[in-house]
Design a protein around this nucleic acid. Structure first.
Lengths: 338, 338
DNA sequence: ATGAAAGCGCTAACAG
DNA sequence: CTGTTAGCGCTTTCAT
């Protein structure tokens, strides 16, 4: 297949005998265009197989219609779900997503922010409130919407949409103590780099202390959160601290792994050991036993973030002002494992 | 925080008393720059907080350094893993990923292709060989690398990297028949829109026939593949066809769900029923029983695709020619469930 | 090693 | 409703 140079506005203008700007107007569906003009242009565009060059358009109009999105990970299914939510909203518009993955590394995030901002995106969505000083600086200088997602415990640079991880920790502490557990352990992963995990764990621990049931032990694994890691860690932890009567896991994949361990090892749940997780991931409702967890609205956060962004773009709508913080609800799911 | 207009090359040039092009050269690290010039420019750039505008750069140089990536889904963890692989490679370079999600809809894919190509990306990665006629047309006209991933059964527009789904179907048919199963069922999902699923299923079915053990039944669910769906479908299928002695599932999440059902229902595996899946998803190694499946190299395909793309970009390296097809190996994982 | 001029392909602003 | 003119912020090409 011959690959010819792409047709430009000028080509279409010449072929249809009108000015470039008229072609531009037709392509952008600007109001007040005669149907004759439109017809001529559309035909010429079709025969030339014309596709507008968005790069040139973006430069001239100073608006890229790109939304930069930075998430920390792809292996925790939470973030693909958020991206799905964002895309579901953007796909109805001309906005596109430019992706960055920070791997829970603020330094790496800073590089990505710098790189993505050089594209002059129409907005940027970043994960969490914790960023390097330089990231913070770049983001606050950025003239377009900056949306921090996933968290609610912090002050947004511009606007934020998320859940309170501190509240999650408290809810779970109250629940476990209320159920009578007294030797409560906590298990985390990824070297606990996600700051939101730390918020949950710390408020969990603090609340336990307040309830006079201090955290009995805590195990933070270096590797990425996964079902297998949960299985291994549960086995480990029970060997070292056999009197543990409840474990709260940083993420649902861990608790599922732990559940698998207990199934295999013949550990009675919740009689011998209580189990609880976090996120309410999809596979949780397929387990033989309903597992206690706290559901986070991932898709919804993605959708809400994208919608907030669009609202900001359309001056007509009344968009949330700078500094506003949307706190989305957490859903406590009482399972049979605690 | 005051949001000042972004500094431009011109501003930096004026402040440092050199020409714009010199600033441009310093920013791009072009060879043959005196250290005095470099120092002056770098200092001016720093005080002005200058960040190059990549949109302008892309227009002038006719190269965006954007890689368009279109995947069908985010809820099947296979695709986030591919994206992770792509990002791992690109993150070391100046290339960025622009994302599109087609939801297994060729029509939607066509729209996304058109939209993304209007950005003049430096390359495009699409999933599979099946596209609308217009998509095919746009992709073959596209002057930059077009990489079709995930599949090996078809002819690439440009180049492809993937696994043979037909081979997967055959491997599993041979295995199950070899193990003595004679009432073999197949379960799929997503209305079987993924063409690769159809390839697996059809070659599975064909091979079974050749082995004189025709497929005993087949159940295709409309909803997205998930653990829960696998659990429900397994239960359903066994009710309708109680003499089934083996089920081959389109995806591992389904087989895990089925396994959960059997655990709960007290069905003996593999004595009463054999189970097998596809993909080798991470949670598979955490199950109490090792589940038979065929592992696909997802991360590796992403990495290979991104590397092939980069190789094509750097004229120095000898890049794979148009028409070349990379077939990646499938790994049969013999579990205890069959 | 550095600069001047021209232009990438489009749209804003202002006519008419 | 349509056209003219001037850029958007950068890089290419060609000088020097």
């Amino acid at each position: 297949m011959r690959k010819l140079a792409r047709a430009t506005l000028k080509d279409v203008a010449e072929l249809s005998g009108v000015s470039e700007i008229s072609v531009s107007r037709v392509m952008r569906n600007t109001p007040n265009i005669s149907s004759t003009l439109r017809k001529k242009v559309e035909q010429a565009a079709a025969t030339l197989n014309y596709t507008p060059n968005r790069v040139a358009g973006a430069l001239a109009s100073k608006s890229t219609q790109l939304l930069a999105v930075i998430v920390p990970s792809m292996s925790n299914s939470v973030f693909p779900e958020v991206l799905d939510g964002i895309d579901a909203v953007l796909s109805k518009t001309a906005y596109r997503t430019v992706l960055g993955i920070s791997h829970y590394d603020e330094q790496r995030e800073e590089e990505i922010i710098q790189d993505l901002l050089s594209w002059n995106p129409s907005g940027i969505i970043v994960t969490g409130f914790e960023h390097t000083a330089r990231s913070l600086d770049m983001l606050s200088r950025f003239p377009n919407p900056v949306i921090e997602i996933m968290d609610a415990d912090g002050s947004p640079i511009d606007v934020s949409i998320g859940v309170s991880h501190q509240q999650a920790g408290i809810l779970m502490a109250d629940h476990l103590v209320g159920q009578g557990y007294r030797k409560i352990a906590y298990v985390g992963a990824e070297g606990e780099r996600p700051s939101r995990s730390i918020k949950r764990r710390e408020s969990f621990r603090k609340r336990l202390s307040e309830l006079a049931v201090p955290l009995s032990c805590m195990q933070i694994e270096a590797s990425d959160s996964s079902v297998l890691l949960g299985k291994q860690t549960c086995s480990d932890l029970l060997r070292k601290y056999p009197d543990t009567d409840a474990i709260y896991f940083d993420n649902d994949d861990l608790v599922v792994g732990a559940y698998m361990h207990c199934l295999q090892a013949g550990i009675d749940i919740p009689g011998q050991l209580a189990l609880a997780g976090f996120n309410g991931l999809p596979f949780m409702d397929a387990m033989p036993m309903k597992i206690t967890t706290i559901r986070t609205p991932r898709l919804e956060m993605g959708v809400a973030a994208a919608e907030l962004f669009l609202a900001r773009m359309e001056t007509e709508k009344q968009a949330p002002a700078e500094g506003s913080k949307v706190v989305m609800p957490l859903q406590f799911i009482l399972g049979e494992t605690s």
